[in-house]
Each structure stands twice: as C-alpha cells, then as structure tokens.
Design a binder for these strands. Structure first.
Lengths: 347, 347
DNA sequence: GTGAAAGCGCTAACAT
DNA sequence: ATGTTAGCGCTTTCAC
C-alpha cells in the first residue's frame, strides 16, 4: 500500500506539502509546478488516499446514513435510494444504506452503527408515505425524513404532494370533458388517501362540478380491491374513474374486461403511482400520476446537506421550531386510458 | 464527544485496559469485574467507538462495497441488496451501495472511491443475469459477481439456476397432465432464455415427451411480446404455456381474455420471475418460478467473506484457476393458473 | 514556500 | 493483571 509518506519521499517534498498538493488546497502557498510534480508522482505510484485516516484527522467522514424500513424491498421505491445516492455522490459523500425491515430493534442498532461510523447525517425513509415516530436518537444528529413526517415537526421532511397529485389526476379527466368522475380510494386512511381525495375535490370545485359523496368508493388498495369495486363503480354512472393507485386500476381493468367494457371508449381511467410494470403495459396503457421518488431522494440529501452547513443538530428539547415539510410535485403521465385523448393533449 | 480516553479515566484504568474491556477481548487477561465496570462507565458516559479510528488502527474497515448497474432501480431486484445487507450485517460489516446506472466511468470512479474507503471486498451485481466484463481494477480486491458472471471465470459468481427453473416450470405442467406445452421464450438470447429452454427440454425428456421445435415461440420479453404471441400460441394447439417471464404471461392473459379463453380452464399458464405485483394479482393468480434474489445477495456476501478469510486477491494475471459459479435454486410458486390444480398440489 | 510535529481515537505489542 | 507506548495515514498549525 502506497502512503502519502511514500509519495512525499519520491517527490522530494515534505509530507505536508504532499498533502496540500494532493488535495489542491487553495490556501496553501505552493507553486503550481510543485503541485503538478507531486501529483504526477502520486499517480505513477498508484497512490490512493486512505479515507479512514483522512476522516479521522479531519473529524469528518464524508458519509451519510440512509435508513429505510423497506425502500430496497419496495417494487417501486428503489428510485428514492438512487436519487439520494446520486445527490450524495455529487457532493463527494457516500451513502451507508441499511434496510431495517421495519424492525425497531434493528433500527436502534443501525443508528448506533452509523454514529460509530461518524455519518454526517441520517436520512430516514419509509416505504409508504405516512406519519412516523422516529427513534429519539435521531435528534442527536442532523437528519431528515423522506416519504414520511413526524407530527411534531421536529425534523425536516420531504414528501410527495398528494393533493396536487389528486388534483392533476382529476383535472386531466375534467379537461377531457368528463363531469361525473368516480374516485376509488384506499379504504385505509393515509396521507395518500386523504391528500388525493382533497385534490379530487379541489379539481371538481375549480371546474364548477358539485362534489357528490356517492362517487367515492373505498376498497383495499390492491388489484383485488379494484376488481371488486366494479359494481360500485358502475353504479355511480360515472364516465371516468380516478383510482387511488395503479394496482387498483389494474384490477378494475380486469373487471371491466370481463363485462365487455372498453377502456377508454366506455370508461376512462386514471391511476396513481406510475408503477411502470403495470401502468405502461396495461391495454390500453394507463394514464397515471407519478410518485416523484427519485426527487424525494435527491431533495432528502440536499436538505440534509443544507442543514449540515448551517445549523447544528437541535439538542434543545424545548425548542418549538417547526421544521419545514417539502411537498414534491407528482407529475402526470399521459397514456391511453382517457377518452377523448386528443382533448387531453391539447390542454 | 466521549473518547476511550475519557472512559478509561473515569473508570480509573488505562486506556489499553479500557479498550480490551470494551471489545471484550478473549485473550486479554483482565478480570470480569473490571470488564463490567469499564463497560458500565462507558454506557453511563454514552461512549461510542469511532469506527474511523478503529479501522485505521486495525487496518480494517468492516465495510463491503456493493456496486450495481441498477439493482436499486429494478422493480424486482432490490431484494438482492436486502439479502446482501442482511448477511453483511450478520457479520458486523456495512454495505457501501453505489448504483452506477450502467455508466462505465461512474463505475471506475466508484471503484476508486470504495478502495479509498478500504472496503474489504466488492460485490458487483447486475440487473439482468448476463455475462459481463468487469473493470480490471476489480481484480485488485476480493470480489464476487452477483447475477452475472465473466466468461473467463476470473471471479466467483452467484447466479440463479435458470435450467432448474425452466425444468420446474415445465414439470409442474407435466405433472398436471399436460403433454403439449408451448414455450414463449425471450427473442433475445441470454442466460435466462438459453437456460430456461434447456430446462424445458430436460423436463419434457424426463417425461418421455418428444421435443417439438414448433412449440417454441420467441417474442420480446414484455407484456406486448406476450400479447402479440397469442396467434402463435394458439397455433401450437398446446394445452399449456410456459412463459419466459411474468410480464409476457400478463400480456398473454390479456390476449386470451379478449378471445374469451379462460385460464386455466382452457389453457394453463406458468410464468417466471415471480414479479409479485403482477403474478400474485392476475386473474387467476399466476403460478410461476421465483428468482432467488434475496439468496443471491446473501450468497454473494457469504462467498466474499469466505474468500476474504482464506485467499488473498489474485494479482497473478497468469493464474488459470477457474472460480466457481454458484447456481441458486429458483423455487416454484404455485398459484391458480395451472389446470387441473388439484393434481399439481398432490405431487 | 516548505517542513516539523502534534494530534485525530484507537489497537496491540511490549513492559512491568 | 494492567499500564506504556508506538504506531495506523492523514491534516493542519506553527515555525522557519
């Protein structure tokens, strides 16, 4: 293993100078010539910094912890890690990723493990968008919540904008001319269920359409739920349906198919999540609203890095400052399940 | 920040003794009483090891690099990371995960970055099972390939057993009494396409069924491919179809549906991949073969750790030793798309 | 401009 | 059984 010592010796300079040259320190007063020479030598010797030594000396590890309760498992949330990692990388940091599988004990251990490794902060991310009660330890370090939030607002959080998403989904139907729109929502209450409903109502209202509670159908948020809600959907006499997610839409497609009803000719459908393996490949392909997963990851890290620069972690338990929640836009993905589609495109 | 120094002082022992007590060194000859006392003090002081300092002193980082070309992206391969991480964790190691997005330049940078961080080895994993040419640098360190392999067998590799998978898929159909079985394979050649076909042929052969090339249909391995292969499938007069993957099966379901054909009454179907969001939720739920993703991750790390213990990384370019390839079993997941299903269960 | 040297927090060989 | 001490490889202050 080649050390800085070796490089210095080979270049005929002191180890301090070598360090400056390698790191290209702005404030070090060494001539370009020396810098170049040292670096040449370093390359020719195949020198590589030892991040452990560097971190120890500088009291900084250039690493960020990423705790998730299953992001890596989720079929459609790995993108969050990708975004986080890309943004961390941009800033010369590396991510220590641990999936706790939702286990509180593992979570605590993970936290300790990360602290030992001198992480500069921790991103705490969840699989589904919901309220969490993060382990108190998290307050000892800079941290941000991604795809979740704590009710007391002790941590900055980055979440998808469910309301806007629900609004966009509904508006695309309204723009296409639909006025009677059913909403097959998740039977479980959640930020997604609440937010998307609110968006749905806002959209109707902005188009002057009276909200009719009987157009709201609730079912489990999976294919079966969508499939089984067919009767209720047809009973609403709606010409279009906004499904809480793509999986429900997939189930609804099946049920519609079985009754010989065509999408979008007989009924228009909009989903949510843009779970590509489903939405992009249904017949017809499903118009849906995408979850900004990659962005959530990016913004999570960015938020963390910003707060690292400025403030120290809050240790003052009495502090009442509410941390901000960033709501990230959910873009609409137009495909072929809304009729008449030409109108959709023109607006 | 509390250091070992502080703990030693508070406990009234030397720093060395403190270190031994904390690490519970077997060979250190210190009485239990002292150990206990020191640890009590450490806890009460809120002491936490500094992994950087420890790693520097021991020349060991307890971390493993995990490079992937998109595992985190893949809707169904995040499990590989989960498995890898769980196994690493078991051994007191942490994973440094970087997704290169398939970019060769990022790949090189990632490698350098990981070496700087003194990783004890690198797992190089790919999204699809295929042959790779890993960057030469990889040979400088202990490494193992996961879900991919190099033709020259310079690295140990862990891959799914495609042949056995294909065999299992076909056998379940044979056991159910089917004798004319179409195989809708991927039109692109790949270890999966080749292996699954081989398994299909082996299964037929072991049941004394003559292989008929006309039952092999090739199409792009996605929903559209499956959907469009309907004519060809029907033309084979097969009573059952083995699809190269669940996505193709999903497309085929759609096409079958449109012609009023029922699964499994009119035709039985088996998929591959066990992409749950699809397979578990089609109507009827799809019998399929699962990719052992979690296991791939576990075995990747285990293999790495084993070789770390024993051999040093091969630097000898002329060495001709072929590294082993571990083929991991792909379990069959029985659901409702094979008829008659009762027979299936009884065997 | 450059170098000497004091750490960073910990481990482990060596002394006692 | 316990303490002393020399590093691990690097950064950075301070002196020249």
């Amino acid at each position: 293993m080649v050390t800085l010592q070796d490089v210095a010796k080979a270049a005929g300079v002191s180890i301090a100078t070598a360090s400056w040259a390698i790191n290209d320190s702005k404030d070090a007063r060494i001539p370009q010539e020396t810098r170049q020479r040292v670096r040449k030598v370093a390359v020719s010797l195949g020198y590589r910094q030892n991040a452990l030594a560097r971190g120890l000396a500088r009291g900084q590890s250039d690493s960020i912890g990423f705790i998730s309760d299953g992001v890596a498992t989720s079929p459609f949330a790995g993108q969050v890690i990708r975004g986080a990692q890309a943004e961390a990388w941009q800033n010369g940091k590396i991510l220590l990723v641990v999936d706790t599988n939702g286990d509180k004990r593992i979570e605590k251990e993970t936290f300790a493990f990360m602290m030992e490794r001198q992480v500069e902060g921790i991103v705490y991310s969840t699989w589904v968008h919901h309220a969490v009660e993060p382990p108190k330890e998290l307050r000892q370090v800079n941290s941000v919540l991604v795809n979740c939030f704590d009710r007391r607002r002790q941590y900055p959080a980055v979440v998808p904008n469910e309301i806007q998403g629900g609004r966009s989904a509904t508006e695309i139907l309204l723009k296409a001319g639909h006025r009677r729109i059913a909403f097959v929502n998740d039977i479980d209450s959640s930020p997604a269920a609440i937010g998307r409903l609110e968006g749905y109502r806002q959209a109707l209202s902005s188009y002057g359409v009276q909200f009719d509670p009987s157009t709201i159908i609730r079912a489990p948020s999976n294919q079966e739920g969508g499939y089984r809600s067919i009767e209720a959907v047809l009973a609403t006499k709606a010409t279009a349906v906004f499904c809480h997610n793509d999986r429900m839409a997939m189930g609804l497609y099946d049920a519609l198919h079985e009754r010989g009803l065509k999408v979008p000719d007989d009924i228009s459908i909009v989903g949510f999540d843009n779970q590509e393996v489903i939405s992009a490949h249904l017949h017809p392909a499903l118009t849906t609203v995408a979850l900004p997963q990659y962005e959530l990851g990016v913004l999570g890290i960015r938020t963390l890095l910003e707060s690292t620069e400025q403030v120290k972690p809050q240790t003052d338990e009495t502090s009442q400052t509410k941390r901000k929640i960033i709501h990230v836009t959910c873009p609409i993905i137009v495909r072929d399940s809304v009729f008449p589609s030409n109108q959709v495109i023109h607006h």
